[in-house]
């Protein structure tokens, strides 16, 4: 019991400085503020500038963040929401909670022209099939190779119903195969070892050696190179191009701290924030960093062609496309 009271006391005490200093409440996803994520350093850097304090509210992932907003509606405590991706921004904008960020969209250095006035990108990466170069000598050179390749060499995918990369791969298949996506899924199904609820399970199985391929990001090999000094896991470059994930942030229009929120979004596009992205969030920065990226990033696959549906298209067709996937695989 004592410890419970201690917890409550800590929470109560944590609320006291809020009255004295401005507090910016930022909703984000879990791994952003974990011990190894960029959150703590970004908070520190921003707080020295603003004489304010950042209160992170960490939820499971981008989808969980959006759902929390939908549940809370106008009563939300968020001032800034950070960590949605472009597959979610149409739905997020439809809540009517977000206001214009007031920055020049052209500041965003992402592989597509950025024009969104509500959401601002803070990082991006292309999805990629990561393969184990020790067990796979001839990785697929295209999505078509992957679909039609040797069924004995399996891939681990994520469920598009519960996972962002899972949805990304579904959109990748749709972007390449269009109306024939269902047939392609049926063909690919013989190569799928399993479909996991999230990225973590899939990547854990992959590094355990369960399958020679997994769906992840082009940036994954940089982690292995920098943190483990290993080049064993590589990304396969696909001829058709790679599907893109852009992570964005936006501010709540009705927030009492809107000025501070604006300041935070401006800070987000500066080196103070961006320096933490490459080796802590393992994504590519969407604005200049103070120093060039570590050498490992130079060796990453740089897709010649970027595939991306508009947020509106994804929002309108996601259900139908997931049903198509279900029907192709669940027979």
């Amino acid at each position: 019991m004592k410890t419970i009271f201690a917890t409550i006391l800590t929470l109560a005490l944590a609320a006291i400085p809020a009255a004295a200093k401005q507090t910016l409440t930022v909703y984000t996803y879990d791994s952003f503020v974990s011990e190894w994520g960029p959150g703590a350093r970004i908070k520190e850097a921003f707080e020295t500038d603003c004489d304010c304090s950042i209160d992170w509210v960490a939820l499971g992932d981008g989808v969980a963040v959006l759902n929390r907003l939908k549940l809370e509606g106008a009563t939300t405590k968020a001032d800034v929401v950070l960590g949605l991706d472009t597959n979610l921004t149409a739905e997020a904008a439809a809540t009517g909670l977000f206001g214009p960020h007031g920055l020049d969209p052209a500041l965003a250095r992402v592989p597509v022209a950025w024009t969104d006035k509500i959401f601002m990108p803070f990082d991006y990466a292309h999805f990629a099939v990561i393969y184990d170069s020790e067990t796979m000598k001839n990785p697929p050179a295209s999505l078509d190779d992957l679909v039609n390749g040797d069924p004995a060499q399996k891939i681990i995918l994520q469920d598009p119903r519960s996972s962002t990369p899972g949805l990304g791969f579904l959109l990748w298949m749709k972007a390449v195969y269009g109306d024939k996506a269902g047939e392609a899924w049926t063909k690919l199904s013989t190569r799928i070892l399993t479909t996991t609820p999230g990225w973590s399970e899939a990547y854990a199985l992959f590094t355990k050696g369960e399958a020679p391929m997994v769906l992840s990001y082009t940036t994954s090999p940089a982690y292995h190179a920098i943190a483990e000094n290993s080049t064993r896991y590589k990304a396969a470059a696909f001829k058709e191009g790679h599907y893109l994930q852009i992570e964005v942030a936006g501010l709540i229009e009705a927030s009492p701290e809107k000025e501070l929120a604006r300041k935070f979004l401006a800070f987000m596009m500066s080196p103070g924030f961006q320096d933490q992205i490459p080796t802590r969030n393992w994504m590519l920065p969407a604005a200049p960093t103070s120093a060039p990226l570590p050498a490992a990033f130079d060796t990453l696959v740089k897709p010649e062609k970027t595939l991306l549906f508009t947020p509106e298209e994804v929002s309108a067709k996601r259900r139908a496309w997931i049903d198509e996937w279900l029907n192709a695989l669940a027979k």
């Binding site: 469920d159 519960s162 799928i192 070892l193 479909t195 609820p197 669940a330």
Partner: peptide, 11 residues
Amino acid sequence: AVVLTLGGGPR
């Protein structure tokens, strides 16, 4: 988690 991870797919 067991059903999704070891189940093999949306079946």
